[in-house]
Amino acid sequence: MTGVQIINALAVLLIITSLMVVETRRPHLSAHLYSLQSFVLVLIFLCLAVFMKATPLYIWSITALITKVILVPYLIIKALEKVGDPGEPGALLSPASSLLLAALFIGLAFLIVTPFHMQAILKLKPALAVSIAHFLLGLLCILTRRNALKQILGYCLMENGSHLTLAFMAYNAPETVEIGILTDAIFAVVIMSVIAISLFRVLGTLDTDKLTLLKG
């Protein structure tokens, strides 16, 4: 197997894990699955670092390991403990249609990357497409799930997608940039969790369909 093949295979694995994150009913389990899929992401970083000789990605994989595999899932699980994991009130879409949409997104993502002809990413186009599709899957999760913490996980998925794109296309960027983006991502999760918990305290639920005070 060449490096490119390994990376493309891992990218597929990434999509599968993210579908699992989206489709799992129990937010608790979703958080663990998210940790797993972040681990896949870290592996991709490592592979890229090895095969493309992109040394900065070694550091990226370490920071991603700490923040995405450990810290973010930990935060979500902590938050879930505070609200007692009420489970999910049911989704807008059946698993089958979610799967269909996911396939559609991948197709769309391939369409988006077709016009790119920059030398550096030519071989990795499929993986790049996967990263964009991943981003869209996260969006889907936010739009179709009603549990607030699940929506936060959706945001994390989007973030993973864009992070992967970043690794493909901008791995040589100054570290400050990656640190900045990661800091934002973590703070976003922290702040969303805090607000979600406060919401739970006043509303007694994490069901975002119950957020109906502000209309029009």
Binding site: E159, L199, L214
Partner: peptide, 21 residues
Amino acid sequence: GHKSSLEAAWKYVLICSVGVA
């Protein structure tokens, strides 16, 4: 910390973070 202001804050942070992504 009212219901309505938390609701607004939630929508704000979620929609903007997603958008800005």
